[in-house]
Design a protein around this nucleic acid. Sequence first.
RNA 1: GCGCCCGUAGCUCAGUGGAUAGAGCGUUAGCCUCCGGAGCUGAAGGCCGUGAGUUCAAAUCUCAUCGGGCGCGCCA
Length: 563
Amino acid sequence: MIGENNAVVLLHETLNKIIASEFENIPSDFGADFEHPKHENQGDISTNAAMRLAKILKTNPKIIAEKIIAALNSNDTLKNSGYIEKIELANPGFINIFLAGKFFAGAVNDVLNQNNNYGALNLGNNKKVQVEFVSANPTGPLHIGHGRGAAVGDVVARVLKFTGWDVQREYYINDAGLQMENLGRSTRARYFELLGHDFEIPENGYKGEYLKDIAQEIINKYGEKFLNVPENESVAFFRDYAGNKILDGIKKDLKEFRIEFDKYFVESYLHENNLINSAMKFLKENNYAYEADGALWFKSTDFDDDKDRVLIRANGVSTYFAADVAYHKNKFDRGFARVIDVWGADHHGYIARVKAGIKATGNDPEKFDVLLIQLVNLLRGGEAVNMSTRSGEFVELNEVVNEVGTDATRFFFLTRRSDSQLDFDLEIAKEQTSNNPVYYIQYAYARISGVLREFENRGKILPDNNFEIPAEIFNNKDARLLVELLTKYPDEIKNASENLAPHVLTGYLINLAGAFHAFYNTNVILNEPDEKISLGRLNIIRAVKIVIGSCLELLGVNAPERM
RNA sequence: GCGCCCGUAGCUCAGUGGAUAGAGCGUUAGCCUCCGGAGCUGAAGGCCGUGAGUUCAAAUCUCAUCGGGCGCGCCA
C-alpha cells in the first residue's frame, strides 16, 4: 500500500483528473505514465502524457503540455501539499516535475510508518495461484540446475504472496514412470555388486555412487534375502526404498536452501483416481483425440501446436504427456486462478502442447505461465568447473551450498533473468568484499544496524516515525537519490511480480546498497552537531534498513545485524 | 528444414516505445585526526550483430539477414 501522503500517487491522480476534465475524446483507459528521469536537469518525475495525447488529439504536444502544466500549477491539492518545487516543459513535450525536500521527508515517514508492509501491494486480490517448481524425480540428488529453478520458484512465490496472491507451492513427482523403474533396477544391481555377485546396471540406469550407499543400507537392514528373489518381484521394493531415501535427501537439501513446499503431488495419484482415463475420455468425447496406428493421438494441431501428440502408446501404456494433460486439468479443477510452472529451458518445446492440452480440457491457457530456467555455468576463479554428464555427475546443489552458503547461492542464482545462462563463480560467491554483491548488501544492512546500536549506546532515544525531517537535508544529492530509490520500491515489487522476475529485486538491492554507502560517506549522522539534522538522517537510514530487510526477505537471504 | 531464446563497454549482464543507453568486474587516478574503509569519488572504454520498415520518438515493435544456444520421440 502506498501511503496517502505519497506525492507520486497524488500527482498521478491529479494529472489524470486534469486530463479527463480539460481534454475531450480521450480513450477511457488512457493513463499517464510516470518515470524517474535519468538526468538531474529533468526533474524528479516526468511524464510523456502530452506526446501521447498529441497523437490522439492531433495537436502540438507543447501546447497540450502547457495546458496541463497550467492546470497542475493552479491545483489546490498540489499547492497545499508543498511537495512540488517547480514544473518545467522540455522538448519535444516532456513535463518535468521537480520535487521539494518536503516530499522526500514525507516519503521517509511513509516507509517508517508502514514498516514491513511498505511495498506490499494487492495485485492478486487474494486469488489462488499455484507455483510448481523443482519437481525433480527422486532418482538422484539435486544438482545446481535444480537449485536455480528452486530459488526462482521460491522467490516468485514469495513475491506473489507479497503482492496479494494466495500462493501454493507444489512439487510434482513422476513416481509412475520408467525412470523410477530404472532407479529400482539400478539399486538392485548395486545390491548384487556389494554382495559380490554378478550385476549389470541397466542401459539407461543410474550410475551414481549414492546408490551404493543406499544398497549398503538395504544390506544392513535386510541382509541377503533379495538375492534369490526374481528381478520383477523385487524391483518395486528397491524402487520405493531408493526413491523414498533420495526424496528425503532432496527435502533436506531444499530445507537447508530455505525452501519448503505446501504439497508434493505424485503422478500415481492421477492413475489411482482414474484422472488420466477420464481426461482421455473427455478428449475423445469432444473429438480432440483419435486412434491411429494402434495409438491414441491428441489433435493438438487444432490448438496451435506443430504436430499431433501420442497420449496412449500402441502397447497400451499412457505417455508422460497424457499424465501432464490430466495433471494440469487437475490443477485448474483444484480452483487455481493461475498456474505457474518452472521448467528447465530444454523443455521449451513442450510448452505449446501443454497449453494445447489446457485449452482442450476447457481451461484458459492465458492463465498458465512457464518460467524457463537456463543453464548454470559453474566457475572457480574464472575457470569452468568440469561438469561432464558422462556418468550423470552434475555438481550437486548441496556441495555448492556447503561451500559458499545458502545466502550467496540463492542471491547469485537470482541475479540474471531466469531464461538467460548464468555464470556462477564459486570464488566470487565466497569473497567477503564488495566484489560480492551479497556481502555488499548485507554489509550495508549491518552497517546501519551498527550505527543504530552506537546511537543507543550514547544513551539517546530514537526519533518518532513522524519526526519532521528538515527539508534542507535533501539539498544533498546523495540523500535525494537514496530516498528516491526508497520511493521506487513499490514499483520494483510490481515489476517483479507482474513479470515473475526475481532479478529485478537483486538489481534494485545492489543499487540501494550503493546509494546508501554513498550517502553514508558524505552525510555525517551521529556526529552531526545540528540535532535535527542528525535525527533526520538517522530516520533516513532506519527507512533504508526496513527496505533492505524487506527485499532480502523476499529473496530468502539473511539480513545480519552484525557481520 | 521448422520453431523458440540470445547478439548492448575488454568480460558478465540490466534496460516491459521516450530525452545525453546503465551496473558490476577488469584497467586507471584519488579519498581514512571522523558514526563499521567489508566503504566512497573520478577517468578511460559503445555505429545496442547488420540492413530496411513503422513512429513525433526504436536497444526496445515488424520484416530480412548473419552469428551463438536449444527444441522438434509411441523418451521423461
